[in-house]
Computed example of a mutant assay.
Amino acid sequence: MDLEFLSPVNPEIIEELSGGNNQAINGSLQIHSESAGLPELENVQIALVGVKENRLSEEGENPLHFNNIRRAFYSLYPGNWHLNMVDLGDIEKGDSVEDTYYALQNLVSGLVKKDIIPIILGGSQDLIYAQYRAYDTLDQMVNLVNIDHRFDLGDAEQPISNHSYVGKIVVNQPYNLFNYSNLGYQTYFNSQDEIELMDRLFFDAYRLGEVVNNISLVEPVMRDANLVGIDLGAVNAADLGAGISPNGFDGREICALSRYAGISDKVSSFGLYEYSPGMGSQGDMLVAQILWYFIEGVNYRTNENTISAKKEFIKYQVPIDDEVLVFYKSPLSGRWWIEIPFLANVNTKLKRHTLLPCSEEDYMEACNQVIPERWYKAKRKNEV
């Protein structure tokens, strides 16, 4: 894995930290600096990287740096964490946007293969396309969860932008996408054509009001994700200190969603996009706390995706019409899964998706002869 394209963290920030409180995060974080060079990746679990790319933003290209986020994040105190973390510095803009994509794709792919979770601080959200393409070499179908006020499907025939990257993910080969889930969409920011297309593709979409009313609703969705992206436009302008929408997640809610992403055993990369230095100190601190809660979640993973853990699951069978739904419950965490029937003549990459995370409410509804919607959608995608 070539890391020579990474630029070090601004030396002024490192100078500010010298002699400071070594009990804060900066005291336990290895930082890419001009003097010390790149940190070693041996026994590292989390790697932070900035990507200074926003040329394809439909809102216009603005100067981009992550100095203020780093100041805010480094100053926080860690929880009772047992993780080794590094800050790899930044990926600068390439000669073309495609060059930036290539650098990010290779970095994410290399880190995931080393079981290191990359946390990406990004400019425009089209960078999720590169984050997703990093999984091309990992021989698996991918579940993408996007916390966003828009679906960002766009017109796949048009050039990619920060509002159209999902369409490119769907239509461009190799076809690795198994499911796309949007959390927090706001109807007035999405055309009816896009809303109907989400339904036809059997993708999951949860309106802002649904999630706010019951935030635990999205825990099973996060538990099934491989990569997660957050568009800061999903946060309301009052809590972010910037933005255009008075509606959106508040600070507590977006941090709770970030923790759900971290605690998911399957999430292997996490991106936070649409950052602008103009957000001010309030926005910088909120972004720092979103990162903090993701790492806090990673620290409390239970690793229930292992074969040995699944042997301990309690099995429940629920007959509905001509189907027998098979549920599993973990005695360790109390979390639930439902089995998706595997079709032998379908792409074998789907073997890893035979257990779909669900909630106890899904089990209770099945007992009342109501088929869970996510199970139905996953089964239909398996059959297509």
Rank of each mutant, 00 (worst) to 15 (best):
T187Q: 15
F294M: 03
Q317D: 09
L217T: 06
L121Y: 04
I120M: 11
V108H: 00
I244M: 14
I320G: 00
D321Y: 06
W337T: 08
A366S: 12
K315P: 07
D126I: 00
V142C: 01
G167D: 04
V324G: 04
R335D: 13
N43M: 09
G89I: 06
W336E: 00
G89S: 00
H353E: 09
C255S: 04
K377P: 02
N299K: 09
L153K: 08
V324Q: 07
V108S: 05
I117C: 09
K381T: 07
D204S: 11
G60S: 06
K310F: 08
G280F: 10
L343N: 07
S258A: 14
I46V: 14
S281I: 15
N22S: 14
I307T: 12
L201Q: 12
L64I: 09
A36E: 13
D265I: 03
F151Q: 07
N347W: 02
L127R: 02
L76V: 01
V211F: 04
V218R: 09
P246T: 11
R71M: 04
A24P: 09
R352F: 03
L177K: 02
G50A: 02
L6Q: 02
V170F: 15
S216E: 15
S359I: 07
E15P: 08
E59Y: 07
I254R: 05
F249W: 02
N345S: 15
E210I: 08
R352Q: 13
G271P: 05
P246E: 14
S333G: 08
V49D: 01
M285Y: 15
I338D: 01
N21H: 00
S245T: 01
H149L: 10
Y363E: 12
L350S: 03
N182C: 13
E360Y: 06
Y300K: 13
A36S: 12
S264D: 04
F313K: 05
I263T: 14
D99H: 06
S308D: 14
N299A: 00
A288E: 06
L144M: 03
Y300R: 12
E210A: 13
E361Q: 12
N182S: 13
G229S: 13
I128C: 12
K349T: 04
T302S: 11
Q317L: 11
V235K: 01
N67S: 13
W292I: 08
S216H: 15
L41S: 01
R223G: 09
I116Q: 02
A256E: 02
A156M: 08
V44Q: 03
N247I: 10
A103F: 11
L127Q: 06
Q131I: 02
L177T: 03
I31V: 15
G110A: 10
G280C: 02
Q140H: 14
D199F: 07
E194R: 10
S276W: 03
A225R: 06
